[in-house]
Design a protein around this nucleic acid. Structure first.
Lengths: 199, 199
DNA sequence: CCATTTACGAAACTGGAGTTGCGCAATTCA
DNA sequence: TGAATTGCGCAACTCCAGTTTCGTAAATGG
């Protein structure tokens, strides 16, 4: 069925998301101003609010788009695959800067996004679903490694991935400690090497 | 040295913190309104702002007070000690409810607190210091267990505690999965039992 | 062509955090 | 006692995210 009234300007979505992403990454969550996005995109605020009912929705849409290319791959080497995937998550976390702290931690923006998901039930459902999918894929990766004998037969996969992903978020948001490649490898070693089957 | 002018009403701090804690736990971060706290405490807003320069500072002070009695103890049984301590952390995380979601996750408030710490450099310094202390104590606990032979000699303690604490925060904030006693025990088992020295 | 439907833009409005100015109260020091 | 200092309450103010209203534009269907 063909939609009735005046069609939406399809260029607006793309342009707004691009501008919003730039603002979010450069200046953090509070630096993402609806007025400024509207002005830079050359549209009225109402046009933005028709597409995203609140600033929170726009911000989440921006982040979802940035995360879209975080792929998980199974090469048969569980250690390398985990390091690779956790690196992508870490890179995503490190990309966001807090407003006025270009060198600083991305903690603020990540925290704001968590808060946004809690403020709006629809965002919460959406993001939880996305993270559930990610979780399912990661658990399948671990499970496959367990089945083919790379990991202990009685391994409990769920808390294992919670620990890996959680350690990254914990450092970024809570302790402010760096999350670089060296740490990711150390983390995977700590969590995994002693889970490997013994020769 | 004796302070000069009119002394502060010491009852105000106590009363405000109690009221603010009730509001924060019941209605979440956004439900914590400065105007409402001032009204319920029977003081003017300026009196609050003289003590806490922003709502963020007040909220952080409330949480710090709630966490003050999270003690870490070393009984010589590393597994029990970790379960015990992580239970306290989990209880603190579970106490906070998001505004309008009494049954819901505490994710929102925790996220707001993270964001608050990022917004103000002074809060960030303070909370990072507090978490660094907590981290030091936990690492000492693990280290002691390692030295006395409960844990593997070549254990890397830092990522281990990141994993344990991180898994709790990750579930509360990101996936929304429950964090109850059963999970904490499962988590410690997953992270620790295979770190124990072999007989 | 004309009624209907939906999109758009401009501007005014709302609500809450945070700020400021001012008069008064309480305390110290000379 | 009196000047200086600091706390308090009241009220008006700024600022900005978000909302609402209304007039206009672009499309469809009869």
């Amino acid at each position: 069925m063909v939609p009735r009234g005046r069609p939406r300007d399809t260029q607006v979505d793309e342009r707004v998301l691009r501008i919003a992403a730039a603002l979010l990454l450069e200046r953090g969550y509070t630096g993402l101003s609806i007025d400024e996005v509207a002005e830079q995109a050359g549209v009225a605020k109402t046009t933005l609010y028709r597409r995203w009912p609140a600033k929170d929705h726009l911000a989440v849409a921006v982040v979802a788009r940035l995360q879209a290319d975080d792929e998980i791959t199974d090469t048969g080497d569980i250690r390398a695959d985990l390091v690779n995937y956790l690196e992508k998550i870490a890179a995503g976390l490190n990309r966001m800067r807090a407003a006025g702290h270009r060198e600083g931690p991305s903690a603020g923006t990540v925290g704001e996004l968590v808060a946004a998901a809690a403020r709006h039930e629809d965002i919460g459902r959406l993001t939880r679903k996305q993270y559930a999918e990610r979780n399912t894929l990661a658990l399948a990766l671990i499970e496959a490694a367990r089945v083919r004998g790379e990991l202990r037969a009685d391994l409990d996969a769920e808390p294992l991935f919670d620990q890996l992903a959680g350690a990254l978020y914990y450092r970024v948001m809570i302790t402010g400690a760096p999350v670089d490649r060296a740490y990711v490898e150390r983390l995977v070693s700590s969590a995994l090497e002693r889970n490997l089957t013994c020769p």
